[in-house]
Design a protein around this nucleic acid. Structure first.
Lengths: 335, 335
DNA sequence: CTGTTAGCGCGTTCAA
DNA sequence: TTGAACGCGCTAACAG
């Protein structure tokens, strides 16, 4: 039924070793025999079996990617960056959603390892000791993507979330705002939550603005939670004059909540966020945001992984990509 | 270095066949030996090698997914549906972006087949004879996902794009509109382009509204192209009173172009589209749209594939999922 | 430049 | 209920 390397060898009148050589572009083959083999391959419609090859060579040219949720546009963007570079280096990716759930993450890491991936790209929630343990039993390189571990023992690529948040809030302060609310992700989330919250706090403190915990609401990253949080702030007698949202989506909810109240952005209230997804330009007013280079985070981490897999030694294994504040229309001076 | 089934056998004092049995949950093992084997596995930290298993059993429990672009939220949603169901049936997915480019599609189909995937899910542009040829040489089931082939020879799951467009335009007509513009995708695209355009045309014709080609612009599915197309319509002396957009994103661009001109949606111009992505509720006014159940398309196609892979016979191999118009705020009666 | 020979790690008969 | 032996399709020495 299925045609093997052996069939090709017979058809071409050579040994299977020779067929293997031409298939793998080994130069040590006489052009004439190479031609014969190619013809035999063509005639038989031979397709190399990558599984057998993987068993023999101990390389599968596939990498595992654990991602929180591919339907989240932020992560989808990262995934595209990963896949483009993987493709460039002739790797394929096995994609697993793990929803930032530790148990699910550990589980998929193990099945990925069973499948003998040549490397692992991990995007998730907190990196616990259990994760570290699982990574250690892997005999393949691992790189954290859009995440970091506290200990810094695993190579990673990410932005500096704390600084990104700091810069966002700072641009608000520079416009004269002092009553600045924050809509944060859960503080359990090290990057989107905790780090950004602390950037917010540091910016306030450095500017001598006292931190008011009533001005912070925890959202779930989604549009609706931005709407809801903002409605809460709007109920106060002394409304904030500016809002910093941990994500674009919540920021857009924020903008709409403000507008629904008959107020104007940025005239009455300014809004800024971190992400800069494509949606940021798809609202009116267009959203000012600190840009997180998601595609690049994916691309760079995959590139790093290829180096690790080739055992090249990399100078820097904890790379922090630059962020930048892109000013659009949702931030104005305090009136 | 790596611990194999053989090491476990020795450690447990049994044969490798027995270890294989307990690992694969074969009931023919005395509970006591089973226990011994489990302990040995634990002690040695044995992890089954799925590649070897795949070679021996000729099953890899992984399916290939070729997708146009994972960073497109529509497809990302499908992918999530696929992965959830795949996960449920213990399959993993290898994901390949092919950007609806025929050459790239054929190429990834072949590498997926080399990797011995147990099945293939294809999401792409037009299904050409070359595709059909590639599918035929695959010895594994293939299902088209959010696409169909003309000939209908390959199992598929999709919505009826023509009818969806028809329904969208019809709701405009029911509101009294007769001057209805369309922003379409390229007519080369069988689903998003051609079919939706024809649904538009049919709705007009059935209502005795003559088709005016000046009222149709081709966009590239993106926000900006919606803005641009609408600006064009706005330049006309007799502006359309309603617009049907082939995608949500272009529809949002349309709304903003209208608003930027000082006009109101839906008071001055109504807007409707096909997609109903999460963004539809993230604009003001919220976008009315015909809902395409992307997640379900992914889930159902993966479910269908599992049946095909298990050689269960399926009654219906060309499934058409229902669409539905969800009315929000962007459509109003003609003034 | 080419062929021979071992495995790679596991599933699966077939006997026992 | 268990074990021995073979083979899945290919790569990688090693020899020639």
């Amino acid at each position: 039924m299925t045609v093997t390397i052996y069939d090709v060898a017979r058809e071409a009148g050579v040994s299977m070793a020779t067929v293997s050589r031409v298939v793998n572009n080994n130069p040590n083959v006489k052009p004439q025999t190479r031609k014969k083999v190619y013809e035999a391959i063509e005639r038989l419609g031979y397709r190399p079996n990558a599984v057998a090859r993987g068993l023999a060579s101990k390389k599968t040219t596939t990498v595992g990617v654990v991602i929180p949720d591919i339907s989240n546009s932020i992560f989808a963007e990262v995934a595209r960056g990963i896949e483009d570079i993987a493709n460039m280096y002739h790797y394929n990716i096995i994609l697993c959603n793990a929803d930032k759930k530790k148990d699910k993450e550990i589980r998929v890491i193990n099945t990925l390892l069973e499948k003998q991936v040549d490397g692992l790209l991990f995007m998730g929630g907190t990196v616990t000791d259990e994760h570290l343990q699982a990574f250690k039993t892997a005999n393949v390189p691992v790189v954290l993507c859009a995440t970091t571990d506290e200990k810094g023992t695993i190579p990673s690529v990410d932005i500096d979330h704390e600084a990104a948040a700091y810069d966002a809030v700072k641009t608000l302060i520079n416009q004269g705002h002092t009553k600045i609310a924050m809509i944060s992700g859960t503080l359990q989330d090290p990057a989107n939550g905790y780090a950004r919250f602390h950037g917010y706090k540091r910016a306030l403190e450095e500017s001598g603005i006292s931190y008011d915990e009533d001005l912070v609401r925890i959202g779930n990253y989604r549009y609706e939670s931005g709407v809801e949080a903002m409605k809460h702030f709007l109920d106060r007698s002394d409304k904030p004059t500016a809002v910093f949202s941990a994500t674009d989506e919540m920021a857009i909810g924020t903008i709409h909540a403000i507008q629904d109240e008959g107020l104007k952005v940025p005239d009455d209230i300014s809004v800024i966020s971190v992400d800069n997804s494509r949606m940021a330009s798809m609202v009116r007013p267009q959203l000012s945001a600190v840009a997180q280079p998601m595609y690049d985070i994916g691309a760079v981490s995959m590139r790093l992984l290829t180096k690790l897999m080739k055992k090249e030694n990399v100078e820097l294994s904890k790379v922090v990509l630059p962020h930048e504040v892109v000013a659009r229309q949702s931030v104005g001076a305090k009136s």
